[in-house]
Design a protein around this nucleic acid. Structure first.
Lengths: 215, 215
DNA sequence: TCGTTTCCTGACCGTATGGTCAGAGACAAG
DNA sequence: CTTGTCTCTGACCATACGGTCAGGAAACGA
């Protein structure tokens, strides 16, 4: 790499900034629109309006609607994978699962749109991220299931099927994002308060940890 | 109602049969297509092809795509309300919640498409069934929460927030329908067997019932 | 300043979609 | 057979959509 290339690629470069900033704005708008309307219901025009850019400009950064969608889905997937680290550092179920629930509940709270896009994608048969399910997610799941199994073997929790436990963790935490509208309606039309979010986390942790005989 | 009208409206009448049968076929096809593609991605042509009818015929029975969609959503909602009866006849959490989980898991297994359509609808802000959420579902939820509270007061289970418990029941059971594709992928690409479904039900019941101190 | 690359966008295009409609066909009642 | 009602459908229409493109504007390096 020569000096010229190094300079033109430096992260603070104006060119780079423009591209990065616009991609960020577009991805953010796209996440929202895909979450609200689904892939089929979303339109490039709607995303463009929400991003404050002409539609043709979107196609300059993302060749097709599907490319844009793919990026949105991968983004949320990576956020979730990060939350997995909660699991690793732990020495037992109370610590590990507790931290994992906290992390995933926080994601449901902070990134409800991304969660909905992911849910939608999987519900429709995962047309664009099937390979991720079969590789990354499969490996991740096998790894955590093994960890849970060792906890069981060590007598740190009751013998439960690790996979069904994982499904329950995913379902319960993501429910607060995917079905947030329903929860809000049942909460007299008001979003959960800080206090209520804490109660939700505590309830989930309490029931599950006690349910697996770890608390 | 005079004799003529009575005859022409009798349930076995040929005219009535044609209408009912065609509506049934259309609704069945629509449920599948809406589940697979979402409201925006579904097309009347696709539904027509799946139902084996010309597109114009669909518009004879259902004026608009939205009318058809509305009917599909209400159908699954009523199926779920029926499952609620499991709750009522019970005298305690083990019996009541156990039966409710069984009923909802069975629905996830038998009507995964309906479940997906419902999930999609709620995720997108419940544009067509918001009134149902605010009336029927709100009442139902309040009623069951009260039942759970009495069980707590009677010492039949630990003090947990009834609402978060209900959310967990909904989330966990519906997960097996809505994320069925993901579960199948993690099950080496094979659908859950009869045995595995039983294991799933048992795991869910075991963790939750124990988690609320009822088992 | 000049040349080059990147960025931007109004106007445009082919296609697919939801929906309409006139009229044909099926059936029952008198 | 006649009349009236319900069922059916090919052909059609206006619109909206994803995507393209030519060419202008802006940002650089030299």
């Amino acid at each position: 790499m020569d000096a010229t290339a190094r300079i033109s690629r430096r992260s603070g470069g104006k060119r780079t900034d423009i591209r990065r900033e616009n991609e960020r704005v577009i991805l953010q708008a796209a996440e929202k629109v895909f979450a609200e309307a689904g892939f089929g219901g979303a339109t490039m025009q709607l995303i463009a309006d929400m991003a404050g850019l002409p539609k043709a400009n979107l196609h300059y950064y993302f060749a097709t609607k599907e490319d844009l969608y793919r990026r949105v889905v991968r983004n949320i997937f990576e956020i979730w994978l990060d939350a997995a680290s909660s699991f690793d550092a732990a020495t037992g179920p109370v610590e590990g699962i507790g931290a994992y629930v906290d992390a995933k509940m926080e994601i449901s709270r902070r990134h409800p749109d991304g969660s909905k896009v992911w849910a939608s994608e999987v519900m429709h048969g995962a047309p664009v991220i099937q390979d991720y399910l079969e590789t990354t997610l499969r490996d991740w799941t096998a790894g955590r299931a093994a960890v849970i199994q060792t906890w069981i073997d060590q007598g740190k929790m009751a013998p439960v099927d690790p996979r069904h436990l994982l499904y329950m963790l995913w379902a319960t935490t993501q429910h607060y994002a995917d079905f947030g509208h329903q929860i809000e309606t049942l909460n007299d039309g008001r979003p959960l308060t800080e206090r209520q979010w804490r109660a939700a986390k505590d309830s989930v942790k309490q029931i599950i940890l006690r349910g697996i005989g770890a608390a």
